[in-house]
């Protein structure tokens, strides 16, 4: 028996709006430790990992591990019926293949789960989520890849289009900067990755969920873009960099 009750449907709505374009169908794996979802996009170039902890729910009962295959667009459409302040309850009986009052059809999705090594990163940047979203959107109008370079001074975004190039440099702020404007950098060594902007722009749909975004980079490894949600936990997006031919 699974019974989840969330007092603020708005948060779940924002979570779904931020992932439904990247991934169409995915398994919600619910256990006593929380609900997690890990899925790759159709091109298998990007991946997302979502964790919703039990203490973010008003009521969380999960008698045994259950995996619910869902079409995220249907789930997002269904949740649109709830206003942000509504309470949403998700029930799933072990045997049945539907959830809650909306009788949403569950699907059987064979998804391969990937193991993400908790490796260290050469550079970790924390910056305002809205600034990162605006930079990705603006650069997306000029080129389709962005070179993100981190040095101890700051983080630089460079893109080259047919008619022009754009270079945005965000300087690291002093420790006294207000949290919502702070740009902090932990760095072992300078690192630079070239990434497809359309995926980064898709990741920034999660901007409403968090004030800050954490960008973790290691040369030649997937970039990790993480939005920490104050009560629920996190959404992490992974994107493989482009490598020179």
């Amino acid at each position: 028996m699974l019974e989840l009750r969330l007092t603020r449907a708005g948060l779940l709505k924002k979570v779904l709006e931020s992932i439904r374009d990247l991934v169409t169908d995915a398994n919600f794996d619910c256990a006593a430790t929380g609900c997690s979802l890990q899925a790759m996009d159709s091109s298998r170039v990007a991946m997302l990992s979502l964790l919703l902890r039990p203490d973010g729910f008003e009521h969380y009962r999960c008698d045994r591990n259950i995996s619910m295959g869902m079409n995220l667009a249907n789930m997002a459409r269904m949740l649109r019926c709830a206003s942000d302040d509504d309470t949403v309850t998700i029930n799933a009986d072990d045997a049945q293949d539907k959830i809650s009052d909306y009788e949403m059809k569950l699907m059987h999705i064979t998804s391969e789960n990937l193991e993400i090594p908790e490796a260290g990163y050469e550079a970790i940047v924390k910056m305002p989520a809205s600034l990162f979203a605006r930079i990705c959107k603006d650069l997306g109008t000029i080129g389709d890849t962005v070179m993100i370079s981190v040095t101890k001074e700051g983080i630089q975004f460079f893109t080259r289009g047919d008619i022009r190039t754009a270079n945005i440099f965000c300087r690291k702020t002093t420790p006294v900067a207000k949290e919502k404007e702070a740009i902090s950098i932990e760095m072992e060594k300078p690192v630079s990755l070239t990434l497809a902007l359309r995926y980064l722009i898709s990741f920034t749909k999660a901007t409403p969920l968090a004030k800050q975004v954490t960008i973790s980079m290691s040369y030649g490894r997937p970039i990790v873009v993480e939005y920490k949600m104050e009560i629920m936990d996190h959404i992490r997006f992974y994107l493989v960099p482009k490598v020179e031919e």
């Binding site: 790759m40 091109s43 298998r44 170039v45 990007a46 991946m47 391969e112 789960n113 990937l114 193991e115 993400i116 090594p117 389709d144 890849t145 070239t194 497809a196 490894r221 997937p222 992974y238 994107l239 493989v240 482009k242 490598v243 020179e244 031919e245």
Partner: peptide, 14 residues
């Protein structure tokens, strides 16, 4: 524009 590898090149399936 560089080569785009798959994410499964980096994270092995469990």
């Amino acid at each position: 524009q560089g080569v785009q590898l798959s994410i499964t090149e980096f994270y092995r399936t469990t």
